[in-house]
């Protein structure tokens, strides 16, 4: 446990998940502390995205518990799960912007449905402010199809911030982006923590993203965490051959 993080807000214990014969998670334990950026590393198909989808109830685990802010997600009613979801922002791998809506409508959509009695002025201020903070104020009236991959990722992140979440979950934030845009997204992830006081789980297989954004790394290999700790602890002094091979593989790539 890192000395500067004391308040545990997510506690995952013994989580297993299978899809038919494919045992993706084989008893996973993980903690997330307040204001911490935790990076979950692993190869494609190792179950990283499954883990965060279990956290927000998009999937159900076969075994184990996930406690978020002291609430066991499996025991929550849909109404209570939705209340919990409002405290969690989920930035999808492919951004998941609504194709039929403009950027403004995409941003307003979760806001007007979850926060009652907002005036038009308040909505505009919020949306425009967030677009400013991700550096894309001019895209407000554009359709998602008119945006680049990097712009979509930024707006996807801005859309999740509209509900002021306490936890951010980033699913492969730099996947499919050029190196310059990757740097921008990594900086944005750090900026979000500073400006919005969020705790984050960043799912990635990109070691540069992990090193820049993460306070701690958790390496998921064959359905279990093989190493958890700081970047140096996990990789520089890695003794586990599986973790070493993951590190070597990334740098050779």
């Amino acid at each position: 446990m890192p000395s500067d993080y004391t308040k545990k807000i997510v506690e995952i214990r013994g989580v297993k998940k299978s899809f038919d014969e494919n045992h993706v998670l084989r008893g996973v334990d993980l903690d997330l502390y307040e204001r911490e950026n935790l990076v979950v590393l692993g190869k494609s198909g190792s179950g990283k995205s499954v883990l965060i989808k279990l956290m927000v109830g998009l999937l159900q685990q076969d075994e184990g518990t996930i406690n978020i802010f002291g609430q066991d997600t499996t025991k929550l009613s849909l109404k209570d799960l939705n209340k919990l979801r409002l405290k969690i922002g989920f930035a999808f791998q492919a951004s998941a912007l609504y194709d039929s809506m403009t950027v403004r409508e995409n941003m307003e959509f979760p806001l007007v449905r979850n926060v009652k009695n907002l005036t038009r002025k308040e909505i505009n201020l919020k949306v425009e402010g967030l677009l400013d903070s991700v550096g894309l104020p001019k895209t407000i009236n554009q359709m998602p199809a008119e945006l680049s991959g990097g712009q979509k990722k930024r707006i996807g992140i801005a859309r999740t911030l509209v509900l002021e979440p306490e936890i951010m979950l980033y699913d492969e934030p730099t996947a499919g982006l050029d190196p310059t845009t990757c740097i921008d997204i990594n900086n944005l992830i750090n900026q979000v923590r500073e400006e919005y006081n969020t705790s984050s789980i960043v799912i990635t297989h990109d070691l540069t993203c992990a090193k820049v954004t993460g306070d701690r790394m958790a390496v998921l290999i064959e359905g279990q965490f093989q190493a958890i700790g700081s970047f140096e602890e996990v990789f520089a002094q890695a003794k586990d051959p599986k973790v070493k091979s993951f590190y070597d593989y990334n740098f050779i790539q």
């Binding site: 989808k53 927000v56 109830g57 998009l58 939705n82 209340k83 979801r85 409002l86 969690i88 989920f90 999808f92 791998q93 492919a94 998941a96 912007l97 609504y98 194709d99 039929s100 959509f109 979760p110 449905r113 979850n114 509900l163």
Partner: peptide, 20 residues
């Protein structure tokens, strides 16, 4: 096609995690 494409591009999941 519209709902199918929303499903495969995780737009439906995005609604769900926004409590919609």
């Amino acid at each position: 096609a519209e709902i199918g494409s929303m499903k495969v591009t995780e737009q439906i999941d995005a609604m769900e995690v926004s409590a919609i």
